[in-house]
Design a binder for these strands. Sequence first.
RNA 1: GCCGGGGUGGCGAAAUUGGUAGACGCGCCAGACUCAAAAUCUGGUUGGGGCAACCCAGUGUCGGUUCGAGUCCGACCCUCGGUACCA
Length: 823
Amino acid sequence: MTHEYIPAEIEAAAQDYWDENQCFSVYEDPEKEKYYCLSMLPYPSGQLHMGHVRNYTIGDVISRYQRMLGKNVLQPMGWDAFGLPAENAAIANRTPPAKWTYENIGYMKDQLKRLGFAYDWNRELTTCSAEYYKWEQWFFNRLLEKGLAYKKMSVVNWDPVEQTVLANEQVEKGRGWRSGALVERREISQWFIRITAYAEELLNEIDNLEGWPDAVRTMQRNWIGRSEGVEFTFAVEGEEPLGVYTTRPDTILGITFISVAAEHPLALKAATGNPDIAAFIRECKNANTTEEELETMEKKGVPLGIQGIHPITGEKIDIWAANFVLMGYGTGAVMAVPAHDQRDWEFARKHHLEIRPVIKCPDGTPHNYDEGSLTTKDGVVCNSGQFDNLNYSEAFEAIANYLEERNVGRKTVNYRLRDWGVSRQRYWGCPIPVVYGEDGQPVAVPDDQLPVVLPEDVEFSGVQSPIKNDPGYYQTSLPGTRDPATRETDTFDTFFESSWYYARYCCPGQEDAMLDERANYWLPVDQYVGGIEHAVLHLLYARFFYKLMRDAGMVNSDEPFTRLLCQGMVLNGGVKMSKSKGNIVDPQEMIDLYGADTVRLFIMFASPPEQAVEWNDGAVAGAHRFLRRWWSFVQRMKTTIAPARKQLQDPSWSRDLTDTRARDLRRVTHRILERVNRDYDKIHYNTVVAGAMELFNHLEKFDAEANAHCAAALRESVVMLNKILSPITPHIAHRLWHELGEEGDIMDARWPVVDREALKSDTVKLVIQVNGKLRSEMEVPVSSTRKEIESMAVRDPKAQRFIRGKDIRKTIVVPGRLVNIVV
RNA sequence: GCCGGGGUGGCGAAAUUGGUAGACGCGCCAGACUCAAAAUCUGGUUGGGGCAACCCAGUGUCGGUUCGAGUCCGACCCUCGGUACCA
């Protein structure tokens, strides 16, 4: 059997062909409609995992489909090469991060090639190369010039044993994951990018992102968290006034205490003469910095013995230090209204603080806080003097105006979004291009001295960043002088690299600029594909960065990603594949065993792209079985259907097709095609594959040898099915295309179009329901009127059994679907 | 805690978005081929009842709207993603 299905041979041959003919290299062609399909670039962790395979197969199917629709398709690939895992590997293997990273890239690139992805490899980029990050440093200088980059104190996880900053991921139950030491909150000076200056635009433009999943749009809206409220101050004797922000000014008369962060100046000052407060502040340092931790930990506090003066009543309100308030988020102080806020209520109950209701219960019942009958929703104000009986918006206005007139407050818009902290105290990242003079003031490294190159040949044995201990790196001079200076040894957050890589793909080889005019041919990205875990951070930073580039005149659209698809995870045994769970299925083994087409087919078939997919060895074998059957079917039939090739080139070939069997096959084929095309457009590839299998089941049962009409009909279906499968299983499709004697390459073939004539049928099947329950079905002429359908349904013998002896109250006819008789 | 998803046969899922619940595949059962097994092919396969035609129940739980609900509304349970230094 020379015509056995041997994927290894077929796939290697197809890949060589694509490589040699540069089939996926694309150029700007103003004559053609462009389509930019982008998959999130991988972190080069060592090997591809199934999540990558799924992500990139989805992107590849989209790209190949769009190409067959006649578009000029760009699909690039690159490496998100900076990051923490390289440092961990360096410690574990005593390999410098750069070496480890480049080796991984080499291996993973080979794996990607073996999966047959239609990438334009000429545009490959690696974010840890100085050619790439040079432009990041250059752009940072532009942000400095505009005042969009600045320094401020900010909290980090400090490991007192290793004397280093830990990522949240490196903190386990409050302890450093290697040292086991209790982690401390520590404030250090860090670089920030002013994303809050773009908060309004980032929020408003979410409305225009119609090609994005609603879930992501909602999450981004909530993350930005625009609120309208009032900001006002409490006078504090001998101190600066204490500012707070609230969205509930209607409850201001219910304030019974104020909480400030443990790091707040008022707390620190109070601690000097009070060991209890000092101890509490020390205790607060032993906490993680995550929001989750902040919100779920036990709420603790101590009174500072100082009071703020209520701006309306003039009452003295006790100020507490609390562990759930963080310095640096807002003012570091919050007002507390325990009668109408769950957290404040719990805190007040614990510390026996006054609970003063100022909003009437909705049903008029009295407040009973021992039972916890808490009104947290807005309502009618009470116990608030002149503001009594106002509703929420009236009270909001009246109280805001009151504070504004007395110059102690004002209405304001607030965002939950905080500025983007980009400093990382790590080695394996892009150096922040700044030096510090002897006065400690930061000075930008001039453009002509960029890039500031990260030394790659380093000893990395401990957890400390090697460049922080390397005078050869950090000792320098102030630009344009001989004055000694010290380099910034922090590096950028790796989200910096992934915020603009999609634009750089458009400008391969450009050494003199960050981007050039080619970017505006390809951008914005038409379809972005990646994991839902990036719903907020990466996708928000990338949107922000794009607007920064727009305002720097480098791109001329407002949003980087027109459509977004978030693929689900790959699970095994109901949980995510991971090393720690020991449930990893190695894509390489699967490719070796079955071939890339089988792996691609399985992963597209098993689940809709947005949903989690469960790995199933048996189903993979099933996908392979299908390809083998399809392959041998074509081998068996290709001679029979060969003579019809010329005939099918005439667009009106089917007009003379009189054989009923041939016409039936065409009806089935085009009905399935109609569904398949719809599903391709909607990126429902699991049902595309189901449709392909269904069509194939029909073809296998079809007798093509009956006559020439049947042979022609089968040829149409076979060629069509090969096209339908080709974006998903491109190698076998490429080969069979040639075996079928078709011209050119299938990747440039025209996508099949539904023949409306072929769909036509004389009759239609209708379901008969009685009281909404299925009781019978009937075949009626398509031309039947509503009346005719009703009377046929009522006379139907099976339906009669449920109608007889009862009054027909009404009859509902849904054309083409059903009749429901209500008795 | 907060924000956002998801719960449908033994399993992955489908259902033209309010109109036949379970397409397609996996698994399983039976049969064919074989000395036998594997592979392959054919048929069956939501559960319960019935010789059968058929009947009843059924889409996480409870309630509601509707001629009709997996789909819409309300409450709840479980689970997954994110939570600003994992990427």
